[in-house]
Design a binder for these strands. Sequence first.
DNA 1: GTAACTGCAAATCCTTTGCTATGGA
DNA 2: TCCATAGCAAAGGATTTGCAGTTAC
Lengths: 123, 123
Amino acid sequence: MRFSKQRELVLQRINSAKIHPTAEWIFNEVKKEKSNISFGTVYRNLNQLIDQGLIRIIQLKGVAHYDGNMNPHDHFICNECNQIYDIDIDREDFISGIELKTHHHVSSYHIKVRGTCRKCKIN
Amino acid sequence: MRFSKQRELVLQRINSAKIHPTAEWIFNEVKKEKSNISFGTVYRNLNQLIDQGLIRIIQLKGVAHYDGNMNPHDHFICNECNQIYDIDIDREDFISGIELKTHHHVSSYHIKVRGTCRKCKIN
DNA sequence: GTAACTGCAAATCCTTTGCTATGGA
DNA sequence: TCCATAGCAAAGGATTTGCAGTTAC
């Protein structure tokens, strides 16, 4: 992968962001420093950074958010303000544990597990 | 909510489906019985069924899938074939527990917790 | 020099919406 | 009758892609 100022800026903004930004947010941020950057470039670089394992994508209501923290961790999404918080999950006393630790009110959770299914393992 | 043949068919297909279908799959299935149904109708009914708490939506790679099983449960998504399996998660020995039970190979998981965050609780 | 990268604009994909017509209660 | 719902087609929002020019190495 060749160096590019645009990709550097995209990664920088994700890593310094306190939120889990969308492509649009990143685009607007990078634009402040490189006013002629295009959306195509932002998306192309985001996909490359994912392929390189430097960032991860979080789909929320069909909109992609990006996260530069590659340490395994989970997320708390507020139903009101839609903000995404990082959380470390302690599996004992699942919900009460989260509530005690974070002071959020938990109404539901969804665990998404990925891997290779038993059918595909054979092939 | 008034009765509609279209909505009945949409719900029926979701509930009898062994997969977690997309709007497109549901549209094609219902079309077999009601050839003039439109995509708009399918989407409108899907959103209504969600509002009524009769189905739930699962976002996967930015595409909506629908699930008629409202019992709290989680999902296993195969990296190869993208099939979505229902799973019941036993929090002890998280990954090994899933692998033993399902015979899938787990490479990662992501827990999405929802609720009201500590900031929004105040307001 | 050349392959990767860019900006731009058009295309694509999924989903929603405006409109007029239809049909359930 | 009356209003929720339908079909159709156009609009919308997010993301990808084709192309011709530019840049890192």
